[in-house]
Simulated assay, not measured.
Amino acid sequence: MSELPPLTIVRFSVDDVYAHEAELGRLIHDCVHAGASIGYVLPYELADGIAFWTGKIANSLDGGRLVLLVAFLDGAIVGSVQLDYDTNPNQPHRAEVRKLMVHPDYRREGIARKLMLAIEMEARKLSRTLLTLDTRTGDSAEPLYASLGYKVSGVIPGYCIDAHSGELDSTTIMYKQLV
């Protein structure tokens, strides 16, 4: 790992999303183009990325059932992660970690780990003791999650389309009980 300047992780509001929509759009755009399996396929334009943040994410933040953490390095957005805690009444202890993204130029620098540890702290503040997530089977994020204590619940074959190849990828469902 190279030596990076200090990383700052900020909890974003709806206003923050709109203030940084172009940078956030670039983050998801560049991640999708680098092959990240985060729900989108090519072609994926910058406008699509901006629309994701200003539409879907801003609406969820406005409803107060989503936490969005954004990582900054030297004033630039380099990553993000979400915690969806919009659960049914019988699941007030659970939340889903979604869309962990690190810009391709900053991967393998420990940013994803720091984002995950920060989102776990947010979950604890919300009294969420069970976290779930899914990741493309065999993806580089899978060992990261395992190193953080996430356990494999199972694998679903043919779950999603690969952004580049169009082939069907499996997904690994993981969980972690927070202490």
Rank of each mutant, 00 (worst) to 15 (best):
Q82I: 06
L148Q: 14
L117W: 11
G79K: 07
V155W: 09
N88T: 14
A95V: 03
A146R: 15
R124T: 08
S80Q: 15
S80L: 11
H103I: 05
M116S: 00
R94V: 06
R124F: 06
A141T: 14
D86E: 11
A123F: 07
G154Q: 07
L131M: 01
I111A: 00
K125G: 12
R136M: 12
Y150K: 05
V155M: 04
L115F: 01
E96R: 08
K125P: 07
L83S: 06
K151Y: 13
T129I: 10
Y150P: 00
D105E: 13
D105V: 07
A118L: 03
V81Y: 00
L130Y: 01
L83T: 01
Q82M: 09
V97S: 01
M116K: 01
G138T: 10
G110P: 04
E96Y: 11
P89S: 01
L115P: 00
R94L: 13
A112D: 08
G138D: 10
V97K: 01
T137V: 08
R136S: 12
E109S: 14
D134P: 04
R128C: 00
V102I: 04
K151F: 10
Y150S: 09
M116E: 04
E142W: 07
S127K: 14
G138F: 13
G138S: 08
I111F: 00
D134E: 15
Q82T: 10
M121A: 15
P89H: 02
Y85G: 01
R107S: 04
L144G: 10
I119H: 03
S127R: 15
N88E: 10
T135L: 04
K125S: 15
L100F: 04
K114W: 02
P104A: 13
T137K: 09
T87G: 11
L115E: 01
S153H: 12
R124N: 09
A123S: 12
L131H: 02
I119Y: 07
E120W: 04
L117S: 07
A123E: 05
R107W: 01
L100W: 03
K151A: 14
V81H: 05
N88Y: 14
D86N: 15
D139G: 01
E120K: 10
L117V: 13
T132W: 06
G138A: 05
T137E: 11
R108W: 00
N88H: 13
R108H: 14
G154Y: 10
K114V: 10
M116T: 05
G149D: 04
S80Y: 12
